[in-house]
C-alpha cells in the first residue's frame, strides 16, 4: 500500500538546466552497475523485438527463488515533472526505497495514481520536491497529472535490488551477490503480453546471457505533449 500525507516539502534551490531530450534522461541513473562477462557473478539479459532487433528501455528485474539474501537499495529514486511530462517515463524502485517527485516546471502539477490498490494524489508546486508518497510493496503504478491529461508515467516497485532498463543494445547487466535460481522478468507498460511482461525462471550460472524475444510488436508509447502550443490557456 501507498500512504500519502501530502505536505510540501523541501524546496529545490534552483531549476536544473534544460535537458533537451526525454530520450537521454530516460536512460539515466540505473541502480545496478553494468558488469562484464569476466566478473564471476555477472548475468546479462538481452531483450529483442519481434524482428529480433534489440529493444531499449525495457525494464528487467530478477527475483530470487532459492532464498538468496538481497541487499537493500540505498539510492533515492527521482521522478521529475519537466516540460509537462514525467521524466523518466518509466521509473523502477525497490520497495521501501525513498521516491522523490521533483517538479522542475514553473507551474503546479497534480500527480495521481488511480489504481485501487495504490491510490495517491498530491499537488506539487513549481520547483518543489515531494517525497511523502511511500511505496512499500511490489506494484505497477500508472501515474497521471489531473491538470495536464497528456502526462503519463510509470513507477514499477519491485521486491529486489536487481533491476535495470535495457540499453541501446537491448542489454541489461546485473552483478548478483549469490547465484542460483531466479525469476527473470521483462516488463514494459506497452508490451503486448499477459500483464505486460515475459518471465523466465532459471538457475543462473556465471556469465549467463538470458535472451527474451517479444512475440508481438509493442504498442505505441504515449507522447507526453500538449496538443496546444500556447502557454497561457485558461482551462488548466
Amino acid at each position: 500500500m501507498v500512504s500519502h500525507p501530502f505536505l510540501l516539502r523541501s524546496a529545490l534551490s534552483h531549476y536544473c538546466i534544460f535537458i533537451a531530450s526525454l530520450f537521454f534522461i530516460s536512460l539515466a541513473s540505473w541502480s545496478v552497475e553494468a558488469c562484464s562477462k569476466e566478473s564471476t557473478s555477472c548475468v546479462q539479459v538481452q531483450v529483442n523485438n519481434v524482428k529480433n532487433n534489440p529493444l531499449e528501455n525495457m525494464v528487467v528485474y530478477l527475483e530470487p527463488l532459492a532464498g538468496q539474501v538481497l541487499p537493500q537499495q540505498s539510492e533515492t529514486v527521482s521522478i521529475s515533472q519537466h516540460s509537462k511530462s514525467f521524466i523518466p517515463y518509466i521509473s523502477v524502485s525497490q520497495s521501501t526505497t525513498k521516491v522523490n517527485f521533483v517538479n522542475k516546471d514553473d507551474i503546479t502539477h497534480h500527480i495521481y495514481s488511480a489504481d485501487s490498490e495504490n491510490k495517491f494524489s498530491f499537488k506539487i508546486r513549481a520547483g518543489k520536491t515531494d517525497s511523502t508518497a511511500q511505496f512499500n510493496h511490489a506494484a505497477e503504478i500508472a501515474m497521471g497529472c489531473n491538470i495536464h491529461d497528456w502526462m503519463s508515467g510509470y513507477l514499477l516497485v519491485v521486491d529486489t535490488p536487481y533491476f535495470a532498463k535495457t540499453d541501446e543494445q537491448g542489454l541489461a547487466s546485473f552483478t548478483l551477490n549469490e547465484l542460483g535460481k531466479y525469476r527473470v522478468v521483462v516488463w514494459h507498460p506497452q508490451m503486448r503480453a499477459e500483464d505486460n511482461r515475459m518471465i523466465i525462471e532459471k538457475d543462473i550460472l556465471t556469465g549467463d546471457t538470458i535472451t527474451f524475444t517479444l512475440q508481438q510488436d509493442m504498442n505505441d508509447i504515449p507522447v507526453q505533449k500538449s496538443d496546444e502550443d500556447f502557454d497561457f490557456l485558461s482551462d488548466y
Binding site: F230, F232, L233, S234, D235
Partner: peptide
C-alpha cells in the same frame, strides 16, 4: 477564446 480572461489565442 481559450487564453486567460477569455482572450483569443
Amino acid at each position: 477564446n481559450n487564453a486567460y480572461a477569455w482572450a483569443s489565442k
